[in-house]
């Protein structure tokens, strides 16, 4: 009680998410055609470690503490590339699933970080329905892991709570894994 979201909030998220997906479909060709900045070097689809570093950043990947002289806002290699539309719209469905799998595997053994939330949301937004069986079990694994992490939160004020609730909500209610719903 107090940790899980209201039904009304969940319904609003599903509705917003559905609109976001429609907009992606509408704008996909545009973003796919945009040139990437020179500093954006996307890993190959099967480069699992490369994708983890790309999305989460080297600081998190290597578990290093940024020094004060680092400007965290600028070095995407260190802090991770955000899921820009020009990046995610380039990914095939197979790549979306593969990156999703890499990140969910990473999350299976580590704590939640903001970069992870942004990428999971972006990848889920690009994941086409109907889901392939592998994608099904993948996103179920994600929702279960989110529930597990949430169950161990000590306070409702924990800033990861809303992100965990959002993931559970989208998997359970948008992707219709109703048995996992709050």
């Amino acid at each position: 009680v107090g940790f899980s979201p209201s039904l009304r909030w969940q319904q609003q998220q599903v509705s917003n998410f559905s609109e976001v997906r429609q907009s992606i479909n509408k704008h996909r060709q545009h973003w796919k055609a945009q040139a990437l900045d020179d500093n954006v070097i996307m890993p190959k689809p099967d480069d699992e470690e490369g994708w983890k570093k790309f999305c989460l950043g080297e600081n998190i990947y290597y578990n290093t503490t940024p020094t004060q002289s680092d400007d965290p806002g600028l070095d995407y290699v260190k802090v991770g590339f955000p899921p820009f539309l020009s990046i995610v719209c380039r990914l095939s469905q197979a790549s979306i699933s593969a990156v999703l799998e890499n990140l969910i595997n990473w999350f299976g053994e580590r704590e939640f970080v903001p970069q992870l939330g942004r990428w999971l949301y972006a990848l889920l937004a690009c994941l086409e329905k109907p889901l392939l069986p592998e994608a099904h079990s993948l996103i179920r694994q994600l929702a279960r892991r989110c529930s597990e992490v949430r169950a161990n939160l000590e306070t409702k004020e924990d800033e990861t709570l809303s992100a965990l609730n959002l993931m559970i909500c989208l998997v359970a209610r948008y992707f219709e894994q109703n048995d996992l719903a709050d």
Binding site: Q13, V20, L166
Partner: peptide
């Protein structure tokens, strides 16, 4: 404003990040 439609405004390169941040913030405010 300035002739920029809401659609092009929202759908810049960071649209997904904004949508995520907005969703997360809405729970804190709910």
């Amino acid at each position: 404003g300035m002739g920029k439609s809401e659609d092009s405004d929202i759908w810049d390169d960071t649209a997904l990040i904004k949508a995520y941040d907005k969703a997360v913030a809405s729970f804190k405010n709910s």
